[in-house]
Amino acid sequence: MKCPICGREVIPGGSLCDRHTAAYRNLLEGFKTWSKAMEIGWKDYLKAIISNPAAGRWVKEVARRLVEEEG
């Protein structure tokens, strides 16, 4: 199976490749910190990540896909 974001092989038992899986994990961890730091919902968090210049390329790609998927 191919990663829907980059077309690389997905990791065993996963739905994304190793790079985007790691990025997704970091995104989930990051949300915990962001929620403690300020009042922010999941969707606004993703949008903030997409527009943040310090956020990593793979993290932004995952965030964009999640925004698209969740409408």
């Binding site: 790079r19 790691a22 990025a23 970091n26 995104l27 961890e29 990051g30 910190t33 962001w34 730091a37 300020m38 990540i49 943040n52 310090a54 956020a55 990593g56 390329r57 793979w58 993290v59």
Partner: peptide, 12 residues
């Protein structure tokens, strides 16, 4: 490059 590409910034 891995660290940079999968980096999630934290607000402070």
């Amino acid at each position: 490059e891995y660290e940079i590409n999968s980096f999630v910034p934290t607000p402070y």
